[in-house]
Nucleic acid binder design. Structure first.
Lengths: 141, 141
DNA sequence: TTAAGATTGCAAAAAATTTGCAATTTAAAC
DNA sequence: GTTTAAATTGCAAATTTTTTGCAATCTTAA
């Protein structure tokens, strides 16, 4: 269970496992696409805004979540620790967010890159913007 | 000259070429790394904050700039129209931002991806986070 | 069960962004 | 060059987002 892993992770990092943190995590697990902070504040309506902010910061610090920039705002989603590694394509016309896994070929390119620059990548993000298949097939509709 | 191209682009889109816009553009051309909005507001200290915001929005709308999420904030930089296509690696320990061009192999993967999902990508961003060569070679210093 | 320390809610402050409007600037027509 | 209509700016105020201090509450480990 994800939630169990989360509890362990929180403890391992020396923090308390509070009902607010569990709930915020639950909310995050339910999201199909990355979520703005405002939306999370809204969804977590039984806890204080400040608590949401403080916990999102904590989550990011201990690697539970990460932020990505999709469309026009940055958004939050569970990190690879709790969700399989993936990237996004965002449709500028309908707003759809399509997640995809990265290819072996892409990983290989990434490794080449790290080698070339002596850079040690702990994470990476790849975001595409454009138009999804249903939007550009309806272009003249 | 970049600035000439910028002037033409502004006109082509039906907007006025004001000294504020020219100056903001100049500032952008001088940045070696992506810049937070706050920093731009600071650099453009002879124009009103609201003007900076309004013009950055305009620049984004007509494709002069784009935003990327680097480190912890999103930042603004000139788009491919005014700067050669590239991506970034950000060092989490010293904050250095290294720009790199994308490889042919990577482009190929991208095209495969578009084909697979019928997605028409008008732009994409790839951001790496991690530690740069000088930082991890000094890890034990 | 208790005590120490972490976390929360609340209220207020600070920071970031947006908006309305009068004054100014721009571009195009004369 | 003037003139004129429309776009843009600066300013002040409003709004929205994020952060902070602190007392009350909750969590953990003993």
């Amino acid at each position: 269970m994800l939630i169990e892993k989360f509890k362990r992770h929180i403890k391992k990092n020396g923090y308390f496992k509070t009902k607010e943190r569990l709930e915020l995590f639950e909310i995050l697990t339910k999201q199909k696409t990355p979520c703005t902070i405002q939306r999370l504040v809204h969804l977590a309506d039984n806890m204080d805004e400040a608590t949401v902010y403080r916990n999102l910061e904590l989550f990011e610090e201990i690697g539970v979540t990460h932020r990505i920039y999709t469309g026009w705002k940055y958004k939050v989603e569970l990190s690879d620790m709790f969700r399989s590694h993936h990237h996004h394509m965002t449709c500028d016309s309908c707003g759809a967010v399509i997640s995809f896994e990265e290819s072996v070929g892409f990983e290989r390119e990434l490794r080449k890159l790290e080698q070339k620059y002596g850079f040690n990548a702990s994470s990476h993000s790849l975001e595409l913007r454009g138009s999804c298949s249903s939007c550009h097939s309806n272009r003249f509709a």
